[in-house]
Design a protein around this nucleic acid. Structure first.
Lengths: 202, 202
DNA sequence: AGTAGAGTGGACTGTTCGGTCCATTACGAG
DNA sequence: CTCGTAATGGACCGAACAGTCCACTCTACT
């Protein structure tokens, strides 16, 4: 990678990453070729290798990072304020809506099946994404504990981990089957059980 | 595909499927080539196309079916008898053990990311697998209702769907990160909440 | 204005890999 | 025995595609 990037260079680089992300979403990691990305971003092959000298894999990792950031950004307004049951329901709706709209094209899932195994850096990106996601959920649970809606003894980390797994599974099933039933069930049941834990303590 | 298969033909065909399955597990769907499969199964290219005339995709679907069957077969002894809390715990242990042993090589996940999108038949295989899996869970819950351990009003289908999603998510995270924390949390929390629902009703 | 280095274009290459073809051998039914 | 069909071997093909190279242009800094 070039040590210096001029303003123009920066612009081109991000154009490549964003365009590549779009192509990958549409065609899938396996089918997408460098030529597709070139066509989409209006760049030449030499530019691709100019900004990502070690080739496709390096570009893929950059896209992965880009997409990972977007996942949380999208939910942040809701995910960051899980301090009432109402806000949990809102967040639930947003998650479902987002993934239903996205249908069976998952910007990340496919990316990591391809790259995650081989590249060491890619795995770190997923781990970090999941960590932050789970941390937000945990913060939400703690917020409810603070208001007294949930008992203090509740094991926040396990609950957050389980919830995150449920979401991931729901999404994963949505990707494989095209149906959002399981995602809905997972979120509804997860929140319901949380509420239940609150009621049981009261 | 040949209308008739002699005994020898049958044997070769399954040798190919099983060998291909092994290769796919080891190298991943993307990296595995027909030559790898030929080498592993001691067959020639003409044989591959003799038994799977439409080529790699058709073979991949056959492998997917093969693997899908194995997933449930493995768990069946436990999954088929979820009629006490004890048996649920046993099943939990088996699932975790199985997926931990398997590590980050998922016979199915990767397969469907590759084939599921394109081939119509492949998606049907996953859907059927999930349906049967969820049905077994639902049967287990109903068994507990029958013994009075769980209240009759409990929505079996949603609970089973949520549980299935939780498992899938746990596995999916295990594949991406290499850690089984979330799978454990998902199973533990899922079963705990189920028990909770039983206690609350009593 | 000049120059070093960033940015860009696009032809070219080497290889990998799915898929085709045909020749040869094994087999099973009549 | 023998003829039709299944089973097998392996050479060959062509397309797709990541990656290379070099020539040319633009930009920034002095």
């Amino acid at each position: 990678m070039p040590g210096k990037l001029t303003a123009k260079g920066q612009a081109t680089r991000s154009r490549i990453v964003e365009g590549a992300a779009a192509v990958l979403r549409e065609k899938g990691v396996v089918a997408a070729t460098l030529d597709d990305i070139m066509a989409r971003t209006g760049t030449s092959k030499s530019q691709l290798f100019h900004y990502f000298p070690s080739g496709k894999d390096e570009l893929l990792v950059a896209v992965a990072q880009f997409e990972a950031d977007r996942v949380l950004e999208d939910q942040q307004p809701y995910l960051g304020r899980l301090d009432s049951w109402e806000s949990w329901e809102q967040w639930r709706d947003v998650v479902i809506e987002r993934y239903e709209a996205q249908g069976d094209q998952c910007p990340l899932g496919s990316l990591f099946h391809q790259v995650g195994r081989s590249t060491p850096g890619a795995r770190a990106i997923v781990i970090e994404l999941l960590r932050r996601w789970q941390e937000s959920l945990a913060a939400g649970i703690r917020a409810l504990q603070a208001t007294g809606a949930l008992p203090a003894e509740l094991d926040v980390d396990v609950r957050a981990a389980a919830l995150l797994a449920a979401i991931q599974g729901g999404v994963s099933i949505l990707l494989s089957t095209g149906r959002s039933t399981h995602l809905r069930a997972a979120l509804d049941q997860g929140i319901a059980d949380l509420r239940h834990a609150g009621r049981a303590a009261a």
